[in-house]
Design a protein around this nucleic acid. Structure first.
Lengths: 224, 224
DNA sequence: CGCGAACTTGAGGCGTGTCAACCCCTGTGG
DNA sequence: CCACAGGGGTTGACACGCCTCAAGTTCGCG
């Protein structure tokens, strides 16, 4: 567990300190179950070990926005640091396991092990940069570009985790993708179909195979 | 400077430590000038002291997205922690001053002064929560709702800084507001005009007076 | 195995974008 | 001190991309 559930890139000695001090419980979350809810007390951050999650922000009138899909290695729950309460729901899209990292312990240990603190800051920073990139997609791209960017981002993340970058099973529904991308589920479905007609990919329900990643990238680069 | 340019809520003793150890230079930035650029080396975070900034993300094809407007007390530059390079441009919308907080020093001092570290984490967390809220606006709201949310957010922030919550001068152009909200400048202009026609506010160029904040809030709450 | 949820596809409407003309304000130079 | 230039803002007409609503199909789960 030590080499991937906690920030990597630390020395053996540092890992020893962490192993013995930062008691990270592994928690199982069944498909559809909620890891934490809006308003619930924040006292730990979570790192996805297996499975995929979505985080959802909800307005008082019930409007929902998927703010992210988290998979192996991704952090969840840092939104709660500010107010001590979570601001999103975290829901498992398939049976999953997460490392529970008590926040108090992490703060204390970060002080003693600078690389751990740095790694934590880097991950928060990365989340911010990623969010800004999503804002760019939502704010200035058309449907096709958003879907293309979504798929390329997904394959990148799968590849970096050692999975196939071309063939995959989507863990989220069209509705959830649409919410994340600021589109209606019908538009997502239509765009998939259009991409397939254009020979960019094969899609059949949640099974997707990217046959022309360069073509998708060109869509984003404006090479029509 | 100590009581507002650095995280507040610390004890006198802690402030003493900071005053003497964290040498925060005050840097002036003229209107239109760039504080840092995409790709430039990250070595300090900045806290706005006076003035207003915008941060802008740009794609390789020149597409631009304003990712935020920063005013007194807001942090800028944490996007650079992850890769060591900035991912956005930070541009002053009026003559401004910022505290330059060397990142290495902040990390070191955070270890010695837990409340400082906590405050820093809270501010990063707040930025993430805020970004998610912007994603919700961009992903699931119509033009009027976005503009209303933008104005209410602005007045909130001005009020918490001791300024009038009703009358203000916008520091950003219609184009910049539009970019931030995922709308075209004409749509922003039209929406302002419509709000004025409905008696929600008075607008004349960049001078805005909110006359019916409740009405704006109702727009967001779906009370049409 | 069967039901319900998820997905696909079509037709039509609406909101926002696009393009264009005009106005207002600022600031600059004669 | 005034005239003019130019950027920013407003407003209108029209187009188009995405949403809405609806019907039919497929698939996954109990």
């Amino acid at each position: 567990m030590r080499e991937s559930c906690l920030p990597v890139g630390l020395t053996e000695v540092e890992l020893e300190q962490i192993d013995s001090r930062l008691v990270t419980v592994l928690r199982k979350v069944a498909r559809g179950e909620t890891l934490f809810r809006v308003g619930s007390r924040f006292d730990a951050i979570f790192q996805v070990w297996t499975g995929v999650f979505k985080t959802v922000m909800t307005t008082s009138q019930g409007r929902e926005q998927v703010t992210g899909f988290q998979m192996g290695g991704d952090l969840m729950g840092v939104d709660g640091i500010d107010t001590g309460r979570h601001s999103v729901d975290a829901i498992a899209l398939e049976d999953a396991q997460v490392c529970v990292i008590p926040y108090g312990t992490l703060e204390r240990l970060g002080r003693e092990i600078p690389p751990l603190q740095q790694q934590f800051h880097r991950m928060m920073s990365r989340e911010i940069v990623n969010d800004h990139s999503v804002m760019l997609h939502l704010g200035s791209m058309c449907a096709e570009e958003r879907v293309a960017a979504f798929l390329l981002n997904l394959t990148d993340r799968l590849r970096s985790r050692g999975f196939s970058a071309s063939s995959m099973v989507l863990r989220m529904s069209r509705d959830e993708i649409g919410s994340y991308l600021g589109l209606k589920l019908e538009t997502v479905s239509r765009t998939f179909s259009k991409f397939q007609a254009n020979g960019l990919l094969f899609v059949r329900q949640r099974q997707i195979q990217i046959t022309d990643p360069i073509g998708l990238q060109h869509l984003l680069d404006g090479f029509v």
